[in-house]
Write a protein that binds this DNA or RNA. Sequence first.
DNA 1: GTAACTGTGTGGCGTGCGTT
DNA 2: AACGCACGCCACACAGTTAC
Length: 298
Amino acid sequence: MLDYALLSALAAVVRTGSFEQAAQHLNVTPSAVSQRIKLLEERIGAVLIVRGQPCLATEIGERLCRHVDQVALLEASLRQSLPGLQHDERPVTLRIAVNADSLATWFIPAMAQTDGLLFDLVLDDQDHSADWLRRGEVVAAVTSHGEPVQGCNCHSLGSLRYIATASPGFVERWFPDGFDEAAARRAPCLIFNRKDRLQTIWLKEALGTEIRPPLHWLPSSQAFVDAALAGLGWGMNPEMLVREDLRERRLVALTPSLPLDVPLFWQQSRIVGPLLADLNRAVLNAARTLLTPSPAEA
DNA sequence: GTAACTGTGTGGCGTGCGTT
DNA sequence: AACGCACGCCACACAGTTAC
């Protein structure tokens, strides 16, 4: 049987990055934390923390921390559904996978509509965020996967609309005769990371062929917009982020009539269902207000 | 039979000091 | 400065003993 006093020490060290801060967090001395970690490592038979600044969890340590988080969520969920149990005043931390563009546009307003929850967000591409749920590393995800992950409920959120945008100067230099295949092969394109396929998909839709333009790698939603504004390249930007720039002509759409709508889904673990009720409402509400309705819902 | 008391073992913690 | 180790203290659980 796992000793949760020891595990909570492990989780505190990993969360705070040091034995000292973990001790403050647990209201004990650093020595007590050190002894708990040592005992846990002896019992498990493996090193759980790489001592340093900051202290980091080993792979096994990480797995144990995730287990502690899940147990905490289950307990909080149980307390909510059994009114007889004493209420725990500590806020619950929810680990959620979300794509960067959702975070930069509509997800924070959803988070702000909840009360008494703490968030631990994991950033990943919308095509890969569901993998975090499958691995049990998050309790919910914003994903492009519409098929429910095992043990999860799935809600359609609508679509995040992307517009292929660039600065007027960039368009004048690289597309003087309009947007065509030959120019698209030469014009530098902005790409978020190696998982980002939006540009490829949109180019295929726009030109009917696969094109590999020269790439700038920019793993930040805001830097993506800034780079487009600076004339560094063209990129698929969320309409919500560039609406004002398009209106003021600081950015222009490469082909105004061809947005790319990426359908998004909210998948959340059923096992901590009661705990997520507030967040579910907030997410669906924010999505309804801020995202583009999917064709089936429109 | 039961309650109260006592002795012992164990676990957890803090202090002080050494090590890196 | 941060962490680990040795040591001692304290609280608690449990078993054995005694008194009623």
